[in-house]
Design a binder for these strands. Structure first.
Lengths: 137, 137
DNA sequence: TCTTGACTTAGAGCGCGCTCGAACCCGTAG
DNA sequence: CTACGGGTTCGAGCGCGCTCTAAGTCAAGA
């Protein structure tokens, strides 16, 4: 598989794939006789996992550490696990943080809903003001 | 309140506060006779809300839009509400995305746990291999 | 009076993660 | 033969959100 194909299948651009190889996030790819990169489909699994790490906000420098351990192979599992467990905790914390912010956002939005309700009430005839009222003052 | 005090109370640096004012996220602050910014405590509420927007990943350009509407005052509530509702949806989607990634992360970590379990089993005497086994092959 | 330290402005610089341009090399179809 | 649509390397540039420096002003305390 050539870099263009991998780009299509992975969703990355060829530029980004080369960049990732350059910094060590992707292993150095075999080249064919024209010095073009020649990929095995198995790289897609790794790229997909990198995508998860990225999606969850792992900085590249940490992905590099994980990638290096992976390259090193057997014997690095404990450290890889520790790395992922730490990351998982950070992601969980992030989810909690976002959920907390969502509550605040809900409250703020409710405030605007009430503002608009009052406006609608003022524009409406009296019988609708009573029916439409949210918080009877 | 001077900028240094506001910095302490808001968690932002004085540099950042000035930057926010410069770009329009914070309203132009009144100056005292020494041309120093003089803040009212009420600004803290706004800074805190900006912090929520930032925490939830709203880009500054969107915060600027919201800030501009807020400055404009009455009559902009509907648009402010719409802005926040859109943002809320994006945040909810983000939470879902993170949760999906957490499942993948869990699976990956479980894989390493099993790797280590096998290693432990190999190092252990035979009776422990049986007791400790996770997936009987 | 002198020093200290917090403030002012304008503008340069930085860390991150790409993104792109330039100049060149190939293999294949017309 | 030649044009084209890939590929290659190297290095510069960019958008974001700050972050910091320089040079100056000002008020209060020793």
């Amino acid at each position: 598989m050539k870099i263009g194909d991998l780009a299509k299948r992975s969703g990355l651009t060829a530029h980004t794939i080369r960049y990732y190889e350059r910094i060590g996030l992707l292993p150095y790819a075999d080249r064919n006789q024209s010095r073009h990169r020649d990929y095995d489909a198995s790289i897609l699994t790794w790229i997909e996992f990198l995508g998860r790490l990225k999606t969850t906000g792992m900085p590249i420098r940490d992905m590099l550490r994980y990638a290096a351990l992976r390259e090193e192979g057997a014997g690095t599992e404990a450290e890889r696990r520790a790395l992922l467990e730490q990351h998982r905790e950070r992601v969980r914390a992030r989810v909690d943080e976002l959920n907390a912010c969502l509550l605040v956002l809900d409250t703020k939005i409710d405030g605007y809903v009430e503002t608009e309700q009052r406006k609608t009430d003022d524009d409406a005839p009296v019988q609708d003001r009573i029916r439409g009222r949210r918080k009877p003052a």
